[in-house]
Computed example of a mutant assay.
Amino acid sequence: MPSPFPGMDPYLEHPSVFPGLHNRLIALLGEALQAALPPPYFAEIGERVWVEVSGRFIEPDASILQSPSQERGGVAALPTRSVPVVVTVPHDERREPFLEIRTTGDSGEQLITAVEILSPSNKTAGERGRDLYLRKQQEVLASRVHLVEIDLLHGGLHTTAVDAKRLHQAVGRCDYHVSVHRSDRFEDFFIYPIQLRDSLPEVAFPLLAGDPDVPIDLQAIFDRAYDVGPYRRRIRYRDASPVPPLAPELHAWAEALLPEEP
């Protein structure tokens, strides 16, 4: 059974759900690119790894250091006010996959196109994942590498490399979008605006000059990710609301599409 929505499913944008979808989309997009790329191009998955303060709820944990004499029931050598309290702040290791289109030649491998599917951490102020993403984005823009950014999150900060004001002036309001920056067209961004009511577009992935772009149907990728994922069992559509919330008119439209729960 497919998603009840014609394109992106807003119920899958929940912070606890989207990471799994993100990983599946990366893997399936890489698979589709691998099948479509002409030799000697190939698609490879990379990964960013960083440490972030844990968002999981953990009972407050504090302890007071004790001297050996205190542990034995003796008199402490230091006054109590000189003994620090240890407060534990748990951290999580975060991993975020991305795609690269590369080619081989006499001089070795060459990175041609960087492909990113934005995650919630990329669009959240203060997140280490956002800082790392923006740093890489600027490095790619300053290089001879193409950049494809796929934003399937209607909430959060604007993060793709295209200027937000110019984007809205050119395409109006859009719920999602894909931004393609070609290294040989430095001032231009090729934008695929996406509305929640629309299916996801076919996107042209650029290669080296002289080689034709590779078209990939993002809707087919999403449909496959939904089909192989846990979403039809996990998402209780009638008992939940999208996170982040939809605008009132979109919420009403979305509710009309929801299936009856068994």
Rank of each mutant, 00 (worst) to 15 (best):
H14I: 15
H14V: 14
H14A: 14
H14G: 13
P15Q: 11
P15W: 07
P15N: 02
P15V: 08
P15M: 08
S16V: 15
S16E: 12
S16I: 13
V17E: 08
V17I: 14
F18G: 09
P19I: 09
P19R: 12
P19G: 11
P19H: 10
G20A: 13
G20W: 11
G20M: 14
G20Q: 13
L21F: 08
L21Q: 06
L21M: 11
L21D: 00
L21K: 05
H22Q: 05
H22V: 10
H22C: 08
H22D: 02
R24H: 07
R24N: 07
R24P: 06
R24K: 12
L25T: 01
L25N: 00
L25I: 03
L25H: 01
L25Q: 00
L25R: 07
I26Y: 00
I26H: 01
I26T: 12
I26A: 09
A27S: 15
A27K: 13
A27M: 15
A27I: 14
A27V: 14
A27L: 15
L28P: 03
L29F: 02
L29T: 04
L29M: 07
L29I: 03
L29Y: 00
G30Q: 06
G30K: 06
G30P: 06
E31W: 11
E31D: 15
E31G: 10
L33G: 02
L33H: 03
L33R: 04
Q34K: 14
Q34Y: 12
Q34F: 10
Q34E: 14
Q34L: 13
A35M: 10
A36M: 07
A36L: 10
A36F: 03
A36Y: 06
L37V: 08
L37D: 00
L37W: 02
L37F: 07
L37M: 09
P38C: 07
P38S: 10
P39L: 15
P39Q: 12
P39E: 13
P39A: 13
P39K: 12
P40R: 13
P40F: 10
Y41W: 02
Y41S: 05
Y41C: 05
Y41G: 00
Y41L: 04
Y41Q: 00
F42M: 11
F42T: 09
A43P: 05
A43S: 03
E44P: 03
E44W: 06
E44A: 15
E44R: 12
I45V: 15
I45P: 02
G46C: 00
G46K: 01
G46Q: 04
E47I: 07
E47G: 00
E47Q: 11
E47N: 11
V49G: 03
V49C: 01
W50L: 00
W50K: 00
W50P: 01
W50V: 04
V51M: 08
V51D: 05
V51Y: 08
E52K: 07
E52L: 05
E52V: 01
E52M: 05
V53P: 09
V53L: 11
V53F: 09
S54F: 05
S54T: 10
S54L: 07
G55M: 13
G55V: 11
G55L: 13
R56M: 09
R56Q: 11
R56H: 11
R56G: 09
R56V: 07
R56L: 11
F57L: 10
F57R: 10
F57I: 10
F57S: 08
